[in-house]
């Protein structure tokens, strides 16, 4: 499984934000995309998710040209995305939020409940929150819910946008530990995590890419590349 970005160019409101981003996100690897605010991290993820039109370049998942498909196809193709700003449905409960992608994909009941149980095993705190409305959890809790929702569909690729942004230190450690667990339980997943302060991710990163002014430069000095893969 490989997700390929090939010279991806994206403009927002007429301003070129990505100027030819190329990289490969491969299975069994955790790739960290670091860069300052405004460098284009979120835009890269949104382009993968089909939320922004490309000016040029290609995005392919195992040779399947994602440009041809509407945004919601990504979930069907096995790409889960937990956005930095969470994007929960406020009047649905936490559990309904997590189940929502399963519903949209028309998963059969057994499969859906199985995935839900698996998510609750990784993220036991979600089980305690499950009856709360999506609009009634804190920002940090909301990040966990967004991760849970992304895991419902992430059969191949999981994209996490600044998972530690705005988390209390204890919660951030918790989240980092969860990501470590996830690596063990779901070794096949390709993980792409963006971060502006990558300290917490050092332990789980297989590769580090740096994005600067809309261009990705190859591995910004990450000595432990490749061999940490589980």
């Amino acid at each position: 499984m490989t997700l390929v970005l090939d010279k991806v160019q994206v403009s927002i409101e007429g301003v070129r934000v990505l100027r030819g981003v190329s990289c490969e996100i491969v299975e069994r690897k955790t790739t960290i995309l670091i860069g300052r605010n405004g460098a284009g991290k979120t835009t890269t993820l949104r382009a993968i998710m089909g939320l922004l039109a490309l000016d040029g370049g290609d995005i392919r998942l195992d040779g399947d040209d994602l440009r041809k498909h509407p945004a919601h196809y990504r979930a069907r193709a096995g790409i889960g995305y937990a956005p930095e700003d969470r994007r929960l449905v406020p009047e649905m409960t936490i559990e309904e939020n997590i189940r929502l992608p399963g519903l949209a994909l028309n998963l059969d009941k057994g499969e859906l409940n199985g995935r839900l149980e698996e998510i609750y095993t990784f993220l036991p705190q979600l089980r305690d929150l499950r009856k709360r409305p999506g609009g009634g959890v804190s920002g940090g809790q909301g990040k966990m819910v967004a991760l849970g929702r992304a895991l419902m569909v992430a059969r191949k690729v999981l994209l996490l946008d600044e998972p530690f942004q705005g988390l209390a230190p204890a919660l951030a450690l918790d989240y980092a530990r969860t990501l470590g667990e996830l690596r063990k339980h779901r070794p096949e997943l390709a993980l792409l995590i963006t971060e502006s302060t990558p300290a917490l991710l050092d332990a789980i990163a297989d590769r580090t890419l740096q994005i600067e002014r809309g261009e990705i430069s190859e591995q910004a000095g990450s000595p432990r590349t490749e061999n940490v893969a589980v």
Binding site: M49, L51, P70, A71, H72, R74, A75, R76, Y81, P83, R86, R87, L88, V89, P90, E91, M92, E96, L100, P101, L103, A104, L105, R149, A150, M152, V153
Partner: peptide
């Protein structure tokens, strides 16, 4: 259910695989 999700958070619904 999908319509309610879209009307409460369009982008979130799209990420969840809903054909908005």
């Amino acid at each position: 259910q999908q319509i309610r999700a879209v009307s409460q958070n369009r982008l979130g619904a799209s990420l969840a695989g809903i054909d908005t």
